[in-house]
């Protein structure tokens, strides 16, 4: 049970991949304070940048967590990268690459998260109570190995290209999504409760995108299949329709499913003549 509090307001990027339950577990406070962490181009110790304390709280939000961070760490990158076990709770905003390639465990953020959260994750859960940046769960540049499993829940809005190259797993967004949600996704599920910007599901080959709000237009390379009453999101969760079901993306010989809520999208009714 470690509590980290930033010792100052950071200006430079902090490369904080050591903030990971697998690394910190079993270490004393003194040992943790000596761990190497980068601030800009200078190697520092955790103790120089964070106040490290043993956490004995009864706050239910952070009771179970192996690591809790109190305060704004929006400059700290790669927190929880590669983590396999344990839980991180962050009370504040957090920087890029949160939980990158995470293999297990849980990260909860009570604040906003910058881009590439859950990038290439294999398993585990990330829960974000604020907004998330671009490339949620998307892979590194040039790489086509997107999210391979696990779950990302965002209560706020997300930026562009959420779930790009997704292979498995589920992303649930209770706010709105930016352009190109599910870009080139191969499998898995993306649920957006509110609106999505255009180009949803571009180049998808399989998988499922469900949009519960407004979608300005469907790409011309999608074809309408049917109207569905409801869609299963995951075990015990169903979105009530009716939904237009589009199949695509035909430019990639895809048969991905794009569900768009009918009631909020009357401008798509002209597709009905093809049914």
């Amino acid at each position: 049970m470690i509590k980290l509090t930033p010792a100052k307001e950071f200006q430079f990027p902090i490369n904080a991949e050591c903030i990971n339950p697998d690394v910190l577990s079993g270490k004393t406070r003194e040992e943790i304070e000596k761990l190497k962490i980068w601030e800009g181009n200078k190697p520092k110790k955790i103790g120089e940048l964070f106040k490290v304390e043993e956490n004995r709280t009864e706050n239910p939000l952070e009771k179970e967590a192996a690591i809790t961070i109190h305060g704004n760490v929006s400059k700290a990158r790669r927190i929880g990268a590669d983590m396999k076990n344990g839980e991180i709770v962050i009370l504040g905003d957090v920087g890029m690459h949160l939980g990158e390639e995470m293999k297990g465990g849980k990260i909860t953020v009570h604040g906003n998260v910058d881009s590439w959260a859950g990038s290439m994750m294999k398993n585990g859960t990330i829960e974000i109570h604020g907004n998330a940046g671009n490339y949620l769960g998307a892979p590194y540049r040039g790489c086509s190995e997107g999210m391979h499993g696990g779950k990302i829940i965002v209560n706020g809005n997300v930026g562009t290209e959420a779930g790009a190259h997704m292979k498995k797993g589920i992303i649930k967004i209770y706010g709105s999504a930016g352009q190109f949600v599910g870009f080139r996704m191969c499998d898995g599920t993306i649920y957006i409760q509110k609106d999505a910007e255009p180009r949803a599901g571009a180049c998808m080959t399989s998988g499922k995108i469900v949009i519960g709000g407004f979608l300005e237009s469907v790409l011309p390379s999608f074809t309408i299949d049917s109207i569905k009453g409801k869609v299963k999101i995951e075990e015990n969760e169903v979105a009530e329709g009716p939904f237009y079901l589009f199949l695509g993306d035909r430019v990639e010989h895809g048969d991905g499913k794009l569900y768009v809520f009918k009631t909020k999208n009357p401008h798509l009714s002209h597709y009905e003549k093809y049914l």
Partner: peptide, 22 residues
Amino acid sequence: DYELLQAFRALIRDEELEVDQV
């Protein structure tokens, strides 16, 4: 532009488009 490009991609694969204009 994106819509136009994707439309071209579909057309050169001899796919029919379900819209009148892009």
